[in-house]
């Protein structure tokens, strides 16, 4: 059922995702990191398409690439001394961190391989947007509303955090 092209495209996206993620965490230049992150997000969006999650793929591009990444770039630019900062933390923990992460990856891989996944088949490739919309307005209405409140709170919180403090004139 799956043609060779399908596989090639899949692996292309997989390599794009993983490779650019590698650049994100190892690049010496933070701007390079940020642009590599862009490709990671695109790669993940592509994988969503393979998973028949069209709405999510679009959301990924819109919010991650259009929103979060732009935000991060702003963060990079607004903090001037960005380029002076050494890449790796001076805590002297690159090596232990690498070992720890490697062990975690090994454990995850073991779990993935060894677990007898209860596969029941695959969802058909069909548009999901309408169904997601319906669920958001029915079963997931409460989380949906709560999420909007969280967003509002984050917005207000962010504004308060970076606002320059205006001291009221002292009254004797």
């Amino acid at each position: 059922m799956e043609g060779i092209i399908y596989k090639i495209v899949f692996y292309l996206f997989a390599v794009l995702t993983v490779g650019s993620a590698l650049v994100v965490v190892t690049s010496r230049n933070i701007v390079h990191s940020a642009f590599a992150l862009l490709f990671t997000f695109f790669g993940v969006a592509g994988l969503y398409v393979f998973l028949s999650a069209d709405f999510l793929a679009a959301t990924q591009v819109l919010i991650y690439v259009g929103g979060i990444l732009v935000l991060i770039l702003f963060g990079v630019m607004l903090t001037r001394k960005v380029f002076d900062v050494k890449i790796f933390s001076g805590a002297g923990q690159v090596f232990p961190a690498a070992v720890g992460v490697a062990v975690i990856f090994f454990l995850l891989a073991t779990v993935i391989v060894k677990t007898p996944w209860h596969l029941v088949g695959e969802r058909a490739m069909e548009p999901t947007t309408a169904e997601i919309g319906k669920l958001l307005m029915t079963d997931f209405l409460l989380p949906f509303e709560v999420a909007s409140v969280v967003l509002l709170a984050a917005l207000v919180g962010a504004v308060i955090l970076i606002r320059k403090e205006v001291r009221p004139p002292k009254v004797d």
Partner: peptide, 24 residues
């Protein structure tokens, strides 16, 4: 108590790894 959040995080992760390894 280094005050560096990354040290604390690393310690937490090492402990998690140890627990997982022991459990498995």
């Amino acid at each position: 108590q280094t005050g560096r959040i990354q040290n604390y995080l690393l310690i937490a992760i090492i402990v998690i790894v140890v627990i997982m390894v022991v459990k498995i």
